[in-house]
């Protein structure tokens, strides 16, 4: 392999990591605050993709801008779902069966709504940039993804809401004692997670064709990433996404492409056995030692 080929692959892996990160971060925020494994994530990603498509087709809005607009819309949808459904679930420090079933059911409902509204035709967003050799769409998707992740970091570190989220992630009872209003924070956090799912779906819609079943392969990868990242760590998600993208992209050079998913799951198993706290815990240990 030439240096140019290697660089091409590295760039592909980095761009893929950005996409992976933005689709996983929403799940992490929701899990961190509410201990809910959001199985409906793929359904909200699908809504984000169709939202971007509708804005593009009806109003000729650039699909990247449309994806960014999906964020606030899906944020409010997520907050509404929390208010109507999730706040009625029993509180727990561990994921519970009712929450898993509820989210799985919600995914099926969203999927079927998708079929009802948009039918089962494969849709895609095609612009003059779509097939350009210098993949401006991938680059734009990457920039949008990284920009949103940075914005989330700023929110989490410099706002009252962000501090509440981090407090709930670290220790729910201590957070409650210090005056964190759990219901409101959880509602906003869930909205934020769904907003990110919508954004990810909108961005992915520029890269892939989609139907109401969209998001399933991404959901599996999101699980791998958040476990790799340490379940509750935003920076861990970014690192997990990078590791998965690098491993998936470069492992193909040494093993057949048909084993790509097996490699991802191998990585998941390895993380669960060797690094149950994820890469974030490893980094924390390194920092402490240093």
């Amino acid at each position: 392999m030439t240096l140019i080929d290697f660089t091409n692959l590295l760039v592909s892996a980095l761009l893929l990591a950005g996409i992976y990160a933005v689709m996983s971060v929403g799940m992490t925020v929701i899990y961190g605050v509410m201990k809910i494994v959001n199985l409906a994530h793929a359904g909200f990603m699908m809504l984000g993709a169709y939202f971007a498509l509708e804005l593009f087709q009806r109003f000729r809005i650039d699909p990247i801008i449309a994806a960014l607009l999906a964020f606030p819309v899906l944020f409010f949808l997520g907050a509404a779902v929390h208010w109507v459904l999730l706040r009625r679930l029993p509180r727990s420090d561990e994921p519970t069966l009712p929450s898993l079933l509820l989210m799985f059911g919600l995914w099926l409902v969203l999927q079927n709504l998708g079929y009802l509204i948009w039918g089962n035709t494969d849709r895609s967003i095609f612009t003059p940039r779509t097939l350009s050799v210098v993949s401006t769409v991938r680059l734009a998707v990457f920039i949008a993804a990284v920009g949103c992740l940075l914005l989330l970091e700023v929110i989490l570190h410099y706002t009252w809401f962000g501090r509440s989220v981090r407090a709930l992630i670290q220790n729910r009872y201590a957070a409650l004692l210090t005056g964190v209003y759990e219901d409101r924070t959880a509602g906003i956090a869930f909205g934020l997670g769904i907003g990110f799912a919508g954004l990810a779906g909108g961005l992915l819609g520029s890269l892939y064709s989609f139907d109401p079943d969209f998001g399933r392969p991404f959901l599996i990868r999101a699980f791998v990433i958040i476990v790799l990242g340490g379940l509750e760590s935003i920076s861990g998600v970014a690192i997990g996404a990078l590791v998965l993208a690098l491993v998936e992209t470069f492992s193909i050079l040494f093993v057949p492409a048909g084993y790509q998913l097996a490699i991802s799951f191998g990585l998941l198993a390895l993380a669960l056995i060797v690094l149950p706290g994820g890469l974030a815990s490893l980094l924390a240990k390194v920092r402490r030692v240093a």
Binding site: D5, N8, R221, F250, I252, L253, P256, A257
Partner: peptide, 16 residues
């Protein structure tokens, strides 16, 4: 070479 159905990225395969 074989590849998985529904893979989100084929850049490595195409590179090969």
């Amino acid at each position: 070479e074989n590849f998985d159905l529904g893979s989100p990225d084929f850049s490595g395969l195409l590179q090969k």
